[in-house]
Design a protein around this nucleic acid. Structure first.
Lengths: 326, 326
DNA sequence: CACGTTATTGGTATCGATACCATCCTGCAA
DNA sequence: TTGCAGGATGGTATCGATACCAATAACGTG
């Protein structure tokens, strides 16, 4: 920076200002500085900037699985809002692993991130403590339950399940099986499941089909669920998945076995991914506001980091998509 | 750090060493320092560390689209290798946009990343200049062509297309159409396509089906391709896609239209994703070493950053998966 | 014309780590 | 006993920005 200052014939502060507080440097000077910087190939050292200003423009984004289109869209939404605002997004893929998440939080705090956005399951007690102690602005996505001073952006998953339950009852489904895998069933998912059970009450038979999967959401998981369902409960059941991918896998498997969907086997997904409308029969699913949740979370976080008061939570709703599989 | 040093009754350097060069601190002292750090909630400031040591342990990873399972697996491979080695991976999603990529490179250089891994299409001239000027270690993934001092890890996509061409001719396909979209066809993909054309020579009819898509790889794109193919060329063609997702979309659409695959319409994918074996008929595709490319690229980069000599490139091969759609 | 105001610029201490060198201590060989 | 190697530890300058304050120029106003 000293070199650039010298080359441009100005003080270092003018160079610094040229690259940070826009507008406080005269146009003509600014151009001279930028030209000198370009000639010398100068790129401001972010580390030095963060250290000196004692406040980095880093925001941490925690995502269980970036391959999941739901989370990927959230990621896009977050980036699209934070980048123009001058923030740098550091992504951490937690892989549904709490110890990974804790390690990543530490790492973000090491970079002195001022804000963090979490998606997916809930924070561990240790994570929450780390975050509150550090005084970081925190926003949880996929839930509307603000807590511990963390804001929340999402939708009511219990209401979505209530709507789904009503839809199923209305279409005369009377044997409903919830498919899940122990390894990827976190508390929030359990709550979602309870909501469905409640919605159904005893107007239909209800059971849980527990599978063990090693990958979070796979087509195979759906196929396995169909096989398991046929083996244990026989035809005539409605399989409710927690994602569209395994639901699609179930459709493919059902067709392979010559089963009529939804007559022999009904299928429900969750998320509202592209495959839900690409596959035949069209999948019944719950479309959730993926991108918008990310964008809104980012917006809230920006406000918080600027020290402004913000709403504790935002409910962006959902949409029940009645397809041809129920 | 000063506080921790005081609390532990040691000098700041001992604290610093406790958190960085492992082994140079006596076990007993080390424990005292760690305890003090835990009590005080001390987390080393990465920015200060990077500034002071004039060498950050940051590696940039550039990916066109994290939702694409190919790139996502590469990402996993990279992270799994670099994290245990003490490096921090900063991911940048370029979205197939060169100006985004250039901006992200600048940003990485701002963090003084010592190494960068690129996947997908080729670097622009400006990008290459930025990288060489900065003296960063660079590795390209998905290609075996090392250039400009950048190492490369991948497979021979032209050989994969030659193998595919041979397979198609062997199975008697005589009308082959390459499906692509202008927006997402970069130079490497073109080279891949040329290789297929060469492999086929004039032993089969060859044409290109140009679609315009706004998303890189979607099911819809495959469905559109089927519709376009039927409209322009009629039945009996083999559609060659550059990804399994649109190929799967094509299968779904073909079945919806009552077409027999591969008799009325043959379909070929690329990448070797889960859906290729989940869908019926099973998709013919080229399986590429996704995860391993990432891991190997990371390994090479670690060696380079340690100043050791490394092989210029690594060819990890591919596997032609003959399915039921050809 | 004096004077407050605003726009622009510069000097220097400072952020929190690490590099580098110095010091101290211990154990062992001569 | 002496000398010395090597392990453990500490002191302090330094990395490259920004915060803070000061200085100067330009401008309008009464």
């Amino acid at each position: 920076m000293t070199d650039v200052a010298e080359a441009a014939g100005v003080g270092v502060m003018t160079v610094s200002r040229t690259f940070s507080d826009a507008g406080k440097v005269a146009e003509e000077t600014r151009n001279r500085v930028l030209k000198a910087a370009r000639t010398l190939g100068f790129i401001p050292n972010q580390a030095a900037g963060a250290l000196s200003s004692r406040t980095s423009r880093v925001v941490g984004l925690f995502i269980p699985n970036l391959l999941d289109a739901t989370y990927h869209q959230i990621y896009r939404g977050v980036v699209d809002r934070l980048e123009p605002a001058g923030y740098q997004v550091f992504v951490a893929e937690t892989r549904y692993d709490q110890s990974r998440e804790e390690a990543e939080i530490r790492s973000m705090l090491g970079w002195r991130a001022r804000g963090m956005i979490f998606t997916g399951s809930e924070r561990s007690a240790l994570s929450r403590k780390l975050l509150t102690d550090a005084g970081a602005a925190v926003c949880s996505v996929m839930t509307t339950k603000a807590m511990d001073g963390f804001t929340a952006v999402g939708f009511s998953s219990s209401r979505s399940m209530k709507a789904l339950g009503a839809h199923l009852l209305e279409r005369g489904h009377c044997r409903i099986a919830l498919v899940r895998s122990a390894r990827f069933t976190h508390r929030r998912l359990k709550a979602r499941h309870d909501a469905l059970r409640t919605a159904i009450a005893n107007k239909a038979a209800f059971r849980v089909l527990e599978l063990d999967a090693d990958i979070p959401f796979s087509f195979r998981q759906g196929a396995d669920a169909v096989d398991a369902a046929l083996a244990t409960t026989g035809k005539g059941w409605t399989l409710v998945f927690s994602n569209d991918i395994p639901a699609a896998g179930a459709i493919l498997r059902a067709r392979e076995l010559g089963l009529a969907v939804p007559r022999d086997l009904a299928i429900v997904g969750y998320a509202g991914l592209e495959i839900a409308e690409a596959i035949r029969p069209r999948l019944t699913t719950v479309r959730i506001p993926k991108y918008d949740m990310g964008a809104e979370a980012a917006r809230l976080l920006i406000e918080q980091m600027a020290g402004r008061e913000v709403a504790q939570s935002a409910d962006l709703g959902f949409e029940l998509v009645a397809g041809e599989t129920t």
